[in-house]
Each structure stands twice: as C-alpha cells, then as structure tokens.
Simulated assay, not measured.
Amino acid sequence: MKKRLIVMMIAVMVFTASPFMSNEAEASGTVTPSALVEYALKFKGVPYKWGGTTPSGFDCSGYLQYVFNNFGISIPRVSADQQKVGTSISKSNLKPGDLVFFVAQPGNTRISHSGIYVGNGNFVSATSSKGIAVESLNTNPYWAPRYVAAKRYSSVRETTTTPVAAPKPALPVGQYYDVSTGHWAVNEIKSLSSKGIINGYDVSIFKPENPVNRAEAATMIAKALGLKPVNGTSFKDVSSAYWANGYINVAKNAGIIDGRGNGYFEPTALVTRAEISAMLTRAFAMKATNTTVKFNDISGHWAESSVIKVASSNLATGYDDGSFKPDASAKRAELAAFIYRAIGN
C-alpha cells in the first residue's frame, strides 16, 4: 500500500511539473496582437534554416519562439508542442496574433508546421521555399488543405481600455509628425523623401533616431545614385523574395557594399558609422580633400581611410570630444544627412 502511494505521488508530481501540459504559455509580460504581428512581419524575406532560431535563418517553430521571446513570452520550441498550449480557436474566429498549425499531408494528424495569423485570411511563417513569407490560409494550394488547428495565448491581448485616438491625417510628402521644423536634419529628410530615396512609416512618421540596418542603407544609397534593382541573389542570407534584394544586388555589383564573410550579408544587422563611410566613399569615389581632419578613435581602424574621406568632404562630422564613434550604429536622420550632402543638394 505504501509503495503504491509513493508511485501515485510521483505520477502527480510529473504531471504537474511538465511544461507542455500547461494550458498557457509562460509569460513575464503581455503583447498586443498588433505589436506582435508588426514585429513578426519585420523578418519577411529572412531565409529558412533547419533548426534556425535567429534572424540569420529560421525554421517555423524557431521563428515563432524568437518573435514571442522578444516580448518576454516563453513558448515551446517545436510546432507540435506549441499546439498543446493556449486556447483552441475555430478558423472562423481567428484574430491577428493567433497561432495556426498545419500537417505535412492532408489527412495526417501530426503537427509539422506553425505560423502566426496576421489578419485578412493570411498568416506568416518560415517556409523552406520562400523563407519568412505571408501566405493565404484559405486559398494557398499548399497550405489551405494542410491547416488543422489554431490556438490563442492569453499573453497576446489588448492591454488597455483607453479609447483610441482618431488617426492623424497623412502629411504632404517629406513632412513628418516626429520631424519638427526645428529638427537639425529636417531639410535633408524632406528633400530625400520628395525624391523617393527615403521613406517614412505609416501615417507620416519618420523615426529619425531609429538605427538603420544594412539592407536599408544599401537601398538608400542605391536609390540616391539612381541605380535600378537587379534580379538574382548575391548573398546566401538574402533571398530573391526579400524586399531589398534588388537594391542589395545592384549595390554589390557596383562595388558599394560587401558581405560580412562566408557569403553572408546580414541584411537586418545594424549598419555602423564606419560601414556607412565606406559605402559612401565607394559610391561617390571620394578622395580626402582636407588632410587635417583627425579623430581620436579611428587610428588603425579598418575604415580609417573612408572616415577621413567623408569627414574631409563634409559629409559626416565627429563629436565634441574629438571622436567619430566608427562602430556606433548610424541613425536614420544621420544617414539622410550623409546622403543629402553626398549628392550635392
């Protein structure tokens, strides 16, 4: 009798301790559906990598785990286990932020793929053919017949009952709500926007202090030079479906950009002030015009020559402490100013 009681106690402990038997994802916070979807869509075009869990390459469940982890929400690693938590949702009641699940072949029962519902009958997931891509849940000939279930996590929900303010109207091209007339780069931003070299975000927002990634930098410089997108693939981690692929290709062909080794470009990595200096030097074939330009933190740096060239050409400036900060991330307003000066406007 005593032995039987011990066995029963162990069974109860195992049952209650198993993380996959819980009905909810573990969360240290919450996220709104719109914020989750917006973040998930930032990785469109990132290539598929079996076992991948980072922006250099994702598999389907690794992608979902990465997105949720960004908001402090812990979910299981594999699709089959991700389907075991949360609340079951019918297809007709899907809302953005819900997880959708698929089987390898119609009629199977084993979950083999997962994605995030983004609204309007579409979902985003890591696919082996297109990388991170948005597909139709209802009409896609491959995914539609393989859809089997959906789950909603309680940690994905609207977190405020405050009335939402009416959306602001769009401003004329080149004007942004967060770039005042007194902003130091207002003229540069307005000029490049009117030429289609740079773009803002929805509802006339520019986010001038946001860092720029390598794909954005290559695209802006290519547009400033009037270069046209080129088909093909120049790097292992930039698929033909990636939004900036054409501009990355033409910038590579023109000798403006390099990869970061082993055939990889790392398009979503933040671009540094040194890298921007090197890109501008190659793009505009600049030479040093002022040999007295000096900074206290570039001696021996790989981009020292490029920094001197852009600084002596008055495209970029240093800081009050005499530094250039070559390895600091370039901001959107800074890059706009650099390019504006380079094209002579």
Rank of each mutant, 00 (worst) to 15 (best):
G174T: 03
F265Q: 03
L137T: 02
I308P: 00
N120D: 15
I73S: 07
V186D: 09
A104C: 09
V156F: 04
P326D: 02
D327A: 11
Y63G: 01
K84R: 14
K325P: 03
L171Y: 08
P33M: 06
T162W: 09
K331R: 12
T87H: 13
L64E: 05
F43Q: 06
R146Q: 04
A150K: 02
S18P: 06
P47A: 00
S22G: 11
S191Q: 14
T181K: 14
G300R: 02
A278T: 15
K287D: 14
T161F: 12
S128Y: 08
D98W: 01
A330T: 08
R260Y: 10
K130W: 08
A254E: 09
N138Y: 14
K151Q: 13
R260T: 14
E275W: 02
G52L: 02
V67W: 00
N138T: 15
T30E: 12
A251P: 01
M8I: 11
S88D: 12
V118N: 05
R77Y: 11
P267Y: 08
E304Y: 07
T32K: 09
S61I: 04
H301Y: 08
R4A: 15
S240C: 11
K309E: 11
T281R: 03
A336N: 03
K151E: 06
S234G: 09
M1S: 15
L94R: 02
S194G: 10
V103A: 04
S56N: 11
H301R: 03
G57Q: 01
S191I: 11
F101T: 00
V37F: 10
G182Y: 09
G261P: 05
S114G: 13
D320I: 11
Y142P: 05
V14M: 14
V179S: 01
L64P: 00
G121S: 10
I343Y: 03
N187L: 10
S56Y: 09
A35G: 08
G72R: 07
V78M: 09
L36E: 07
T292F: 06
L99G: 06
K2G: 11
A330D: 02
G62M: 03
N296A: 14
G200D: 06
S239F: 05
I132P: 00
A222M: 12
G119S: 11
N231G: 11
Q105G: 13
G174W: 01
Y247E: 06
T139L: 06
K190E: 13
M13W: 08
V212L: 06
Y153R: 01
S299G: 15
I197N: 02
S204G: 13
S56I: 10
K228R: 10
E209H: 15
Y319G: 07
G344I: 11
T53F: 01
K49V: 09
Y177W: 11
V118L: 08
D178F: 05
A11D: 07
S22Q: 13
S112Q: 11
T159S: 10
P163H: 08
E158F: 06
F68N: 01
